[in-house]
Design a protein around this nucleic acid. Structure first.
Lengths: 158, 158
DNA sequence: TATTGTTATACTCTATAACTATA
DNA sequence: TATAGTTATAGAGTATAACAATA
């Protein structure tokens, strides 16, 4: 039974995510931590609500995620002075250091993952994948692993 | 921040898996069902234990998975006459019909997923991905989504 | 009344370990 | 004693809904 590119994509994607998770785990980070940290670093002061919206996740989940990051000292919650209902989120100094570690790890990850390809082939692969991602409407930099899948048609196990 | 091929792979892989799950959900199948069904169809009479080993999953999980398939009438358990401790698993007629449906759905899935690419580009993508998968030691046709990830350091995202 | 964040709760998935029936 | 499959249980992850503070 010949496997097409769609299956290979799903298979390799899960593999890549798993391996990356192992690597950042070595840094004391869970995979969701990494994405959140990056989003907050990119747009400091943003609220939990806006994160929930961008991630396609329920706000209560962001509470737990940020609790986690705050407990690790990587993110700070500051009550907004303009609208005291919401928090402004900031990446701490330790958080920035963690992100630097993530960047190293990500480079090593990419290199090991694509060991079968030379530079030109990697670029070609990235180009093809980029076009597919754009056509599929995927948000650059946002991993669908966050998304609430329960609304969708099929899931897992009956 | 430029995203490399590794991130795109994880992102697109999760997207592809999610969309495929929706489609087979329309057939009344959960994503794990599809893989199990195929493995049993390929190698009729195999035991639950052998499935667990191939999937990298604990045997008790296979019990629930097969219970499910059996309840839907897609798979049959027959007590082995040689060694009465184990079952021989077979895909039923309904199971074969379900697999035919899966093949249709998979073709439509691939076509929609890769709408951004023409035939030559799809072939090129499949070729590149195939080489990466082989170098990474991935088992053809076995999706890592089954694997026990709890032993590993981190888990999801990116 | 509407909105931000929180808590309480429930449900799903999945692993671990103990158990049964064979061998 | 060892193996195939099963059951009981627990823990992680995540959604839903009710709630408090603020607007």
């Amino acid at each position: 039974m010949p496997r097409g590119a769609a299956f290979l994509l799903a298979q390799l994607g899960a593999h890549a995510a798993g391996r990356f998770g192992e690597r950042v785990g070595g840094l004391g980070l869970a995979p969701p931590d990494v994405g959140l940290l990056r989003m907050i670093a990119t747009d400091p002061g943003r609220s939990q609500r806006s994160l929930a919206a961008d991630l396609g996740v329920v706000p209560s989940r962001v509470v737990a995620l940020i609790d986690n990051l705050e407990r690790k000292g990587l993110v700070e919650r500051r009550r907004s002075t303009e609208d005291r209902r919401n928090y402004e989120l900031y990446v701490s100094e330790a958080g920035r250091a963690a992100l630097a570690g993530v960047r190293e790890v990500a480079a090593a990850h990419e290199d090991d993952l694509l060991a079968a390809l030379d530079g030109a082939e990697r670029a070609r692969l990235a180009e093809l994948l980029g076009r597919v991602a754009a056509q599929q409407g995927l948000t650059p930099g946002v991993h669908p692993g966050y998304r609430n899948l329960s609304k969708r048609a099929g899931r897992r196990e009956e």
